[in-house]
Every structure is written in C-alpha cells, then in structure tokens.
C-alpha cells in the first residue's frame, strides 16, 4: 500500500518503453537523393510554416517585451516622447503603498484557486457517475465558462446588492443578515473570489473529468481486491493520477489570477472601498490610461511579471520533486 508514495523516487527515471522504437521517417526520405524537386518544395513550405509562429513570436511577444522593459526605465505619458530616467520608476514603486495593496489583493484572490480546484474535482467525480440528467448538469456547470466575463460581472454586481441582491435574499432565508458585499472592505474581496470560483468551476471540472476517465480501471479493481474503500481509492489512485491536471490548472490559474481585471473594473470601478478590491492590473491600467504614467505603469507590469515568473518556477520545481510515472 505504501507503493503509491514511493514511486516518487523510484519510478522517476524508469526507461520508458514507448520511447524505444526508432522512428522510421528519416530513413524513408534518404533514397530520394536529397535534392528532388518535391523535397525542395516541401522544405520551402515547411520553412514558411515554421516562420509564421516564429515571426509572430518576434513581432507580438519579444518586441513588445523588450519595448516594455525599456519603457519601464522612462518617464513617458504614452503619447509624447520618452525620457530615460533609469531605475526611478522602480524606486518609486518600492515605496508605493497603493501598488503594494493592489499586489496583496491580487494574491489574496488566489485563495480561490485551491478552493475552486477542490470543488471542481468533487464535481468531476460526481459527474463521472451514472446519474440522471448528467448532460444537463455538465452543461449547467460549463455555462459560466463560456459566458462573457463582463456580463457575468454585472449580474453578480446585482446579486451582491446589499438590499435586494439574490445572495442576501438567499442568506436571509437562513436568518443571516448578509453584508453589503461590494461596499464593505472586509467582504468585497471574498465576494469577488466567490464569483471567480463559480466562473472557473466548469473549466477545471471538464479537465478533471477527462483525467479521471483516463485512469485505468484495473487500478481501482486491484485496490478493491486489496480491500481499499472509496476514500482510500480516491486518495491513493484518483488524486495522484490527476496530479498533472492539477499542476496544469494551478499554474495557468495563478497566471490568469495575476491578471484579474475585468470583473474588478466592472464591479468596483473605483478600486473598491478603501482600495480593497483593486488588483495589480487594475492599478497598472489606471496609472497607464487615466493618470498618464505609462512608464511607471510599465515598470509595475514588469514587477508583476517577474513575481509571476518566480512563482511559476517554484511550482515547476515542486512538481518535479513530487512527480512520478506509471507505466
């Protein structure tokens, strides 16, 4: 039974059998002589196809990144000429209380990620059973994912209304006097987390569902023979088997979470009571487009980018240490 934890060390570098058969492709292209017309033609096309994403990357990713790195070292209003000021923007950022608060809020929102993952895993397991109205349930949970975030944010804004909102009406049903969610500094953040979790549930659920369905039945059968109960099976088989999906979801959701903006801007256009809902991107956007400090905003964006990069690297590290393979 302990085998489920030990593979972390033993099974890591096991020679994978599926890597063994040598690919036959190079051999078949040789006899042609190497310079046939067809071959040349194909190569040209291949290059073109390769060039498209490479150029796209250079043009739309690398160039803007380099440009932003430079812009963060300038005083620039986004319209006129740039003026090089060295690290001034970064120094100012270090003492910028609002930026710190916005960063704090942004990472606070990420509390929603593990919560959302736990719920969606539970849902995925439920959806994996044969229950009546399965397709209907799956659809219901997936609808928020494909809905426009702007529309959803407006709806939730109403739902959170202190007096008439659905949320408080529901709470009143149990005799709870709900707060005025979005106008209360302590409740505004949880309110936004709740919405984000609800919105992302379907997507995580779908991925988990796929992962659960690809777990070999034989594993469950074997453990059942060994007398493992449902909970034990879940902990020993399901959870480790969906690990790659969990990892993928955590990484992508942390990155997406760092960029949370639309719902904040719509639900609390001033950054919330006492700046309690402002996210880092909200702050950056305000600085760039409302306060005409494009250079400063770019510096803030770079800081945010670096923070996310560091977190992601740590995640990869942790994942590597804990990973295992089943053949």
């Amino acid at each position: 039974m302990t085998s489920t934890t030990s593979p972390a060390t033993t099974g890591r570098r096991s020679p994978a059998p599926h890597g063994a058969p040598p690919t036959a492709a190079p051999a078949s292209s040789k006899p042609g002589g190497g310079s046939s017309r067809l071959h040349r033609n194909e190569k040209k096309w291949a290059l073109l196809f390769v060039a498209a994403p490479v150029l796209g990357y250079l043009l739309f990713v690398l160039y803007p990144t380099v440009f932003a790195a430079y812009a963060s070292l300038t005083r620039w209003n986004g319209l006129g000429p740039m003026q090089f000021v060295g690290l001034d923007n970064y120094v100012a950022l270090a003492g910028d209380e609002r930026f710190r608060q916005a960063l704090f809020n942004t990472f606070f929102y990420m509390i929603g990620i593990p919560v959302g993952l736990a719920i969606s895993l539970a849902l995925a397991i439920a959806m994996n059973r044969k229950i009546i109205g399965l397709t209907a349930f799956r659809t219901i949970y997936y609808i928020p994912v494909i809905s426009s975030i702007a529309a959803v944010a407006i709806l939730w804004q109403w739902a959170y209304n202190g007096d008439f909102g659905l949320v408080n009406q529901f709470l009143a049903f149990f005799g709870i006097d709900g707060p005025n969610w979005l106008a209360d500094p302590t409740w505004a953040k949880p309110a936004i987390i709740l919405m984000a979790v609800w919105k992302g549930l379907g997507y995580s659920m779908l991925l988990y569902l796929a992962a659960i369905q690809s777990v070999p039945r034989s594993l469950y059968e074997a453990t059942a023979l060994d007398g493992a109960g449902a909970w034990r099976q879940f902990r020993a088989i399901t959870l480790p088997m969906v690990r790659p999906v969990t990892f993928f979801l955590v990484v992508t959701q942390v990155i997406a979470g760092a960029m949370i903006f639309t719902e904040i801007n719509i639900m609390t256009p001033t950054g919330g009571p006492e700046y309690s809902t402002a996210s880092a991107v909200f702050y950056i956007w305000k600085q760039a487009f409302q306060y005409r400090q494009m250079g400063y905003a770019t510096a803030a964006a770079i800081v945010l980018g670096i923070l996310v990069l560091i977190i992601t690297l740590i995640q990869f590290r942790l994942n590597k240490r804990n990973s295992f393979a089943i053949d």
Binding site: N161, G162, D163, F164, N180, L182, A183, D184
Partner: peptide, 11 residues
C-alpha cells in the same frame, strides 16, 4: 438616505 453603504452603488 436609504442605507449607509449605498452611496457607492447605483441603487
């Protein structure tokens, strides 16, 4: 006025 915290909303 309706409620202490309503000033921030559209209500």
């Amino acid at each position: 006025t309706p409620n202490p915290e309503q000033a921030a909303t559209l209500d």
